[in-house]
């Protein structure tokens, strides 16, 4: 089976793997996603304002793109960002609900509210990398490589798109399940199998 994927990243509750290499993440008292951010020497203060889903997507995208020679300061029309997950923004929706739960302590948090949409993840990634191509976020019942890849192929139906930064970005109740990949037009053959294997 040929046509490997240019770059990918897998993040679960206890491991970070980038292009087949397991990264060492020293654990601290901070949350897991913050430990990854620090261990990978990332520098983007807005990260700490994001909800967990956006943090997970941001990290997946950052680590996938890290070794690719992609200029984050140059606007790019030829890259699409496509994400999917199961729980949508339910993790943040729940956090927001807590800020409005009690009539006696009713203080809706604007900073929490802005993340109560899953597609904010694709927006954060696009802003960070100045990606101006198509972006979409789909919610599926479960991880489904065939559907996932059909969305990616759909992005390439636009002839101006040369690459797709695509990810399964699931975060709910402390459970993190992320697979990100950078796929070029030449890598669409066998994409379903590659994605399925990388997710295992």
């Amino acid at each position: 089976m040929d046509n490997r994927i240019t770059s990918y990243c897998r993040i679960t509750n206890d491991a970070v793997v980038v292009n087949g290499e397991k990264h060492t993440i020293p654990r601290t008292d901070s949350p897991w996603l913050s430990d990854i951010y620090h261990a990978e020497n990332l520098s983007y203060p807005k990260f700490f304002k994001m909800d967990n889903l956006a943090k997970a997507g941001f990290l997946g995208a950052e680590l996938t793109l890290k070794d690719l020679n992609i200029d984050k300061t140059e606007p790019k029309q030829n890259i699409a960002v496509i994400c999917c997950n199961r729980s949508s923004s339910l993790d943040d929706d729940t956090a927001y609900q807590h800020t409005i739960q009690s009539a006696d302590n009713y203080f809706p948090s604007p900073a929490v509210f802005v993340y109560t949409l899953a597609n904010i993840v694709t927006g954060e990634i696009s802003i960070r990398n100045k990606i101006m191509g198509e972006s979409a976020f789909y919610v599926l019942e479960h991880f489904n490589p065939q559907k996932f890849c059909s969305f990616v192929r759909g992005a390439f139906s636009d002839k101006t798109i040369d690459a797709c930064l695509c990810g399964w970005v699931e975060y709910f109740n402390g459970n993190c399940d992320v697979l990100f990949a950078y796929v070029t037009r030449n890598e669409l053959k066998n994409l379903d199998l590659h994605i399925e294997n990388l997710y295992k």
Partner: peptide
């Protein structure tokens, strides 16, 4: 601007 709203809260 979101920070401003949070400060108002």
């Amino acid at each position: 601007s979101i920070d401003a709203l949070e400060l108002i809260v």
